[in-house]
Design a protein around this nucleic acid. Structure first.
Lengths: 194, 194
DNA sequence: GTCTATACGAAGATAGAC
DNA sequence: GTCTATCTTCGTATAGAC
């Protein structure tokens, strides 16, 4: 009897989805300009002929789809923190970034940051803005449900996002979890005091 | 009588310095890959023939010099906060970023972040790391002089840097000072409680 | 939906004259 | 130190066959 190990079981993944997925991965690791069609094709094994079939508007459309995917995914993850207290919400959000850093061995970061600091396209900047805004809104609501005032929830949500983003960049630069954990520890402390 | 207005009076600026200066500006605005020699030449008016005269190792050398310039400048600015209390140090550091955002109308950010999220060069990543590390060290010392414990100073310095970096990115995305000010307000509050 | 081939431009880098 | 010209590579995009 032979056992077949399927490395990645994507039940209904199309070539298009694979490309979006690959673009997101490369975006987070290499930045916007360094995410080329060639790289995406190499990573996904997708055929070159498919690019402009699936993304007639070219690269912007692919990147835009990748950002949209990132927004959906992260919002799903954040949504699971509903009903928890401020400390748990903070820890849960930080855990998402911690996993990204560790799994990628400090080579990956936030796709929205990568795009924001490198794009000249209004549309792509808007897509990145949409990500930050949705996190902001969701986290603010969660913190309010956890008992924080509107003002306090808003401010702490924004700070949590900003500090996480910055900490991820610092840990990528250092190739060490240390800066991230230092910031994480501080934030959890703050949340627990609320 | 004719009045001659000199737009930029750099007493002893060489073509090389102008190019480094220009590269830093473009890096902060457009990101790493989008900072091309052509753009630097256009911005500075430097002659194309000078590039490989001044930077024989090419683009990496130019970017590396720009990061070094950024490190020197920011450290000078941070150094001026010596002897101040925790609140003033925090406000002073934040003010540097606020000025960058406002002067550039939310088009510029941190060059070290731009490089970290977009480079594949070990050397350039190290240059960025050096920037974060020097801020970290300097701010930690300042906070210790202001009366904080070693542990507390370290953690707050790291968080201040991370949160500032993240807030700058968010404000660039939103093209509004709001996210930055929300984070800044929170951080100053925290510093004042120490 | 996928393939090959190719056009087109931009960017980094080099050579040699002045 | 600066100039022009050129080379190579690479990335996006297009065309047309299968």
């Amino acid at each position: 009897m032979t056992i077949i190990i399927v490395k990645d079981l994507h039940v209904s993944s199309t070539a298009k989805d694979e490309m979006i997925e690959g673009a997101l991965k490369l975006l987070a690791m290499n930045g916007l300009q360094a995410t080329s069609f060639s790289d995406v094709l190499e990573l996904t094994g997708a055929p070159r002929g498919s690019i402009y079939h699936h993304f007639p508007k070219g690269k912007e459309q692919l990147i835009s789809a990748a950002l949209k995917l990132s927004e959906t995914r992260t919002n799903e993850a954040i949504g699971k923190l509903a009903g928890k207290n401020a400390t748990e919400i903070t820890e849960g959000f930080l855990e998402l970034w911690r996993q990204l850093l560790i799994r990628s061995q400090f080579t990956a970061g936030c796709s929205a940051v990568a795009v924001t600091v490198a794009t000249d396209s209004k549309d792509l900047l808007d897509s990145a803005t949409s990500i930050f805004r949705s996190w902001q809104n969701t986290l603010t609501e969660l913190f309010k449900s956890a008992g924080l005032s509107h003002q306090s929830a808003t401010q702490f949500a924004t700070t949590l996002i900003a500090a996480s983003e910055g900490a991820v960049v610092m840990s990528r630069a250092e190739k060490s979890i240390e800066p991230f954990e230092s910031v994480a520890s501080y934030l959890v402390q703050q949340a627990s005091a609320k």
